[in-house]
Design a binder for these strands. Structure first.
Length: 369
DNA sequence: AATAACACCAACCGCACGATT
DNA sequence: AAATCGTGCGGTTGGTGTTAT
């Protein structure tokens, strides 16, 4: 008996989601939590594939998502991370908590590839103008150092990739737990950084994370959905069955939201990835990552580097919606200080850090990898 | 004003993996 | 051990909006 298709090819609706479908999906997730996607079409009556439901939720309806207008800083982070990690969009997205992998992937394909190509040709021709390719018209106080840095990054991307690949493929017991001894097991998304900044505490360990975050997440989510759909509701007289849900949405039954997640605790709310099993190991992937890129920075440095970033996600206390990231994204766990890499990525105003990392990683690969 | 070309992005598709039976 | 399930991921597509001619 072969595996049945995830959904009937016949009778499954495709294409853009309607607001009504969004409401149905959000209402369902409000009650049951994300997860068990296969049952979603059945229980909601949505004529959608379960995968489509999951995608719609994770890429659009889920709260804490920032859309459009990538900042210079985000752009640079994506470029750097892509150079290091390759097209592992989920892993890259774990460093940009407000962005979905799909979003980043699209942005890369539509914008950044062109820019880099442009940059590449610019480098081949006239090096000294490479700043003018203008990663979004970024002005630099130190054009030379920035240009050098980008050039070196370009020329040494291959070396960095290779070094990273080798490092990840080596099953060093002292570094990588036995549960993640293969390069495959050690997904980069497992090697996520740990961030704890003020109220912005990202913790993906389902067993230790506190669920009130999720409650506010859901609340925030339904709130935003309700606002998004407000106009539609006004213009659509036949909301009948889902009007109630949207009202509930506005009412924001946080506790019920939270409690109802019990149905999704195993898979649902945590949206656990298969690789999360590695978290139970004595050495967490986070630690493995920190070991691989073992540079220290104090927590104060973390908050500093984060707060300095006025362009980026602004990890501030009022951004509680970010707390939801652990619903469907790899979570950033614990309070381990940011590595130099992370600092480098986050700290837009520290060109020296860039130089340091490049020097350490590329000229002394053993130090980094 | 018409339309062709281009850009963007939401969504789909197929594959791979770990968990479960 | 094999079959099946549920999910995540990355590549690709197609619809829609925007710009250029």
């Amino acid at each position: 008996m072969g595996r049945p298709p995830c959904c009937d090819k016949l009778g499954v609706k495709k294409g853009p989601w309607t607001p009504e479908e969004d409401i149905i999906l959000v209402s369902y997730i409000q009650e049951h939590g994300p997860g068990n996607w296969r049952s979603v079409p059945t229980n909601t009556g949505l004529l959608r594939c379960s995968k489509s439901c999951r995608l719609r939720w994770t890429n659009y309806l889920r709260s804490g998502i920032k859309r459009g207008n990538f900042t210079d800083h985000e752009e640079k982070m994506i470029i750097h991370l892509q150079a290091l990690l390759g097209n592992r969009w989920a892993a890259i997205a774990s460093y940009l908590p407000q962005r979905t992998d799909n979003d980043i992937k699209n942005y890369w394909n539509t914008h950044l590839k062109k820019k880099l190509k442009k940059l590449q040709t610019g480098l081949d021709g006239h090096d000294h103008h490479n700043n003018q390719d203008g990663f979004s018209g970024h002005s630099h106080d130190q054009p030379n150092s920035k240009g050098q840095w980008e050039r070196r990054l370009q020329t040494d991307i291959h070396m960095a990739k290779q070094a990273l690949s080798e490092a990840l493929s080596i099953g060093k017991p002292s570094i990588i737990s036995t549960s993640a001894t293969t390069s495959h097991d050690l997904h980069l998304q497992d090697l996520k950084p740990s961030i704890n900044i003020g109220n912005y505490n990202i913790n993906d360990n389902p067993s230790t994370s506190t669920r009130p975050h999720q409650a506010s997440t859901y609340a925030s989510n339904t709130d935003s959905i309700a606002k998004l759909l407000e106009n539609w509701m006004k213009n659509s007289p036949k909301v009948s069955t889902h009007q109630k849900n949207s009202d509930q949405t506005n009412a924001v039954p946080i506790n019920s939201f939270n409690n109802n997640n019990k149905g999704g605790t195993t898979r649902g709310c945590s949206m656990s990835t298969s690789s999360e099993g590695a978290h139970s190991a004595t050495t967490t992937p986070d630690q493995a990552f920190d070991s691989l890129i073992s540079f220290n920075s104090s927590p104060s440095d973390v908050s500093q580097s984060m707060s300095v970033d006025e362009n980026n996600a602004n990890f501030t206390a009022d951004q509680t919606s970010c707390l939801f990231q652990d619903e469907s994204k790899p979570n950033l766990e614990g309070q381990v200080p940011l590595t130099l890499l992370e600092k480098w990525l986050f700290d837009d105003a520290a060109p020296h850090a860039h130089e340091d990392l490049i020097n350490m990683s590329l000229e002394n690969g053993a130090g980094l990898f």
